[in-house]
Amino acid sequence: MMSDTEKMKDSISVKVASADKKRVEAIFDELGLSLSTAINIFIKKSIAEGGLPFEVKDPFYSEANQAELNRRFKKMDSNQ
């Protein structure tokens, strides 16, 4: 028998690029998951983690990129 919380469900509407939706549906299908189930897993994991269940990074700030920028700045400084 379903609990009261299981009966109470809301819908979420999300705009996403059609190509992205097709790609992610194929990935989840390979895992035996529907898009809805995968999103529900993401939501439950976010609740459990108290935030996003993964680290969000800007590639600009990666160690390799920062090292390259520093190298270029030093090169510019030495030429002036």
Score class of each variant (00 low, 15 high):
Met1His: 06
Met2Gln: 09
Met2Lys: 14
Met2Gly: 00
Asp4Met: 08
Thr5Met: 10
Thr5Cys: 05
Glu6Ser: 11
Lys7Leu: 15
Lys7His: 06
Met8Asn: 13
Asp10Glu: 10
Asp10Tyr: 08
Ser11Thr: 13
Ile12Ala: 11
Ile12Asp: 00
Lys15Asn: 09
Val16Asp: 00
Val16Leu: 09
Ala17Gly: 12
Ala17Arg: 12
Ser18Lys: 10
Ser18Leu: 08
Ser18Trp: 00
Ala19Glu: 15
Ala19Phe: 05
Ala19Asn: 07
Ala19Arg: 14
Asp20Trp: 01
Asp20Lys: 06
Lys21Leu: 12
Lys21Asp: 06
Lys22Ile: 09
Lys22Leu: 13
Lys22His: 06
Arg23Thr: 07
Arg23Gln: 11
Arg23Glu: 11
Arg23Asp: 12
Arg23Leu: 10
Val24Thr: 08
Val24Asp: 04
Val24Pro: 00
Glu25Ala: 04
Glu25Met: 07
Ala26Gln: 08
Ala26Met: 05
Phe28Gly: 01
Phe28Asp: 05
Asp29Glu: 14
Glu30Pro: 00
Leu31Met: 13
Gly32Leu: 04
Leu33Arg: 07
Leu33Gln: 12
Leu33Thr: 02
Leu35Ala: 10
Thr37Ala: 15
Thr37Asp: 14
Thr37Glu: 15
Ile39Tyr: 09
Ile39Arg: 07
Ile39Leu: 15
Asn40Tyr: 01
Ile41Glu: 12
Ile41Trp: 03
Phe42Cys: 13
Ile43His: 07
Ile43Leu: 08
Lys44Asn: 13
Lys44Gln: 14
Lys44Leu: 10
Lys44His: 09
Lys44Ile: 07
Lys44Phe: 05
Lys45Glu: 14
Ser46Thr: 06
Ala48Glu: 15
Ala48Asn: 08
Ala48Thr: 07
Glu49Leu: 02
Gly50Val: 03
Gly50Asn: 05
Gly51Ile: 02
Leu52Ser: 11
Pro53Ala: 01
Pro53Ile: 01
Pro53Cys: 02
Pro53Thr: 01
Phe54Val: 05
Glu55Met: 06
Glu55Leu: 12
Val56Glu: 05
Lys57Met: 08
Lys57Ser: 08
Lys57Gly: 00
Pro59Asp: 04
Pro59Trp: 01
Pro59Glu: 02
Phe60Ile: 12
Phe60Gln: 09
Tyr61Glu: 10
Tyr61Val: 08
Ser62Trp: 05
Ser62Lys: 04
Ser62His: 06
Ser62Asp: 12
Glu63Val: 11
Glu63Asp: 13
Glu63Thr: 10
Asn65Asp: 02
Asn65Glu: 04
Asn65Leu: 03
Asn65His: 06
Gln66Tyr: 03
Ala67Ser: 12
Ala67Met: 09
Ala67Cys: 02
Ala67Phe: 04
Glu68Phe: 08
Leu69Gly: 01
Asn70Gln: 14
Asn70Asp: 15
Asn70Trp: 03
Asn70Tyr: 05
Asn70Glu: 15
Arg71Met: 10
Arg72Pro: 02
Arg72Asp: 09
Arg72Ser: 08
Phe73Lys: 15
Phe73Gln: 14
Phe73Gly: 00
Lys74Leu: 13
Lys75Gly: 09
Lys75His: 08
Lys75Leu: 13
Lys75Val: 05
Met76Gly: 00
Met76His: 04
Met76Lys: 07
Met76Phe: 09
Asp77Phe: 06
Ser78Lys: 12
Ser78Pro: 00
Asn79Ser: 13
Gln80His: 03
Gln80Arg: 10
